[in-house]
Simulated scan of single mutants.
Amino acid sequence: MAAKVVVFDFGGVLIDWNPDYLYRKLIPDEGERRRFLTEVCSMDWVVRQDGGELIETGTAELVARFPQHESLIRAFYARWHEMIGGVIAEGAALVEKLEAAGVPLFGLTNWSAETFPYAWDRFDVLRRFRDIVVSGRVKLVKPDPAIYAEMFSRIERHVPGVAAHDLVFIDDNIKNAHAAAALGWHGVHHTSAAATEARLRELGLALGT
């Protein structure tokens, strides 16, 4: 049975987000930069803001823990837009192919509610989706099954009678793809647009030539 609906992650699939774009300017030494982004402004800390914690709260807590790095910590969200490289063209092209084929498209992203509007206002590709679950707005983060349940309930409103096996979820984080698969979705670990497109064709989605 062919898949019917495609759900996209955004960062790393459609939007080029990388803290190094900013911190290469602030911490030129690669070793020091890696330590800072691993031990201070770590992904675990970022996920807390993605899960709905206020940026002001998360920043203040981190500054209290690492006062020697205050300016670098505050730069993370004060200059967050400098971490955005723009739209990933190959990913956007895949969205266009699916849209042209009439495939219902949805978004499921771990993203702070406070920074998401910046991307929404600037990147038209994000407006191609029938609905988007932003983790910071629902205060849930992937790979928590609850955020997939929220996404599924929204898809049902647009596609009545949809089943888990009708859904494809594309994410550059393999844990998130596996979490979707555990719920009966088709989880696709995104490593390149070409590989993802090939997998979508295997799942029966008509993408043209």
Rank of each mutant, 00 (worst) to 15 (best):
R24D: 05
P104G: 00
D20I: 02
R74H: 09
I155F: 09
A89L: 02
E53K: 02
R137F: 10
Y21T: 12
L14N: 08
W185Y: 14
L62F: 13
H165P: 15
S112I: 01
F66Y: 15
A180F: 08
E56G: 15
P19M: 10
N173T: 04
N18A: 03
V159N: 13
I147K: 04
F106E: 05
V87G: 15
E61K: 05
A206G: 06
G187K: 14
R122G: 01
L62Q: 09
R24M: 02
V95T: 09
F129P: 07
A146H: 12
I15V: 10
H190L: 07
A181T: 06
L26Q: 13
A2M: 10
I132S: 02
E56P: 13
L14M: 08
V134G: 04
W17K: 13
T191L: 14
V46I: 14
K139V: 02
L72T: 10
A182K: 11
L98Q: 10
M83N: 11
F8I: 10
A2C: 07
E114P: 11
G58F: 05
E156W: 08
R48I: 00
I132G: 00
K139N: 08
S42K: 04
E82P: 06
P19I: 14
N18M: 06
D131L: 07
G91I: 05
F152G: 11
L54M: 15
L140V: 10
N173C: 03
A149K: 14
D166V: 00
A182C: 07
Q68F: 00
S71P: 04
R130P: 05
Y23F: 13
F106M: 12
V125H: 04
G184D: 02
L203W: 05
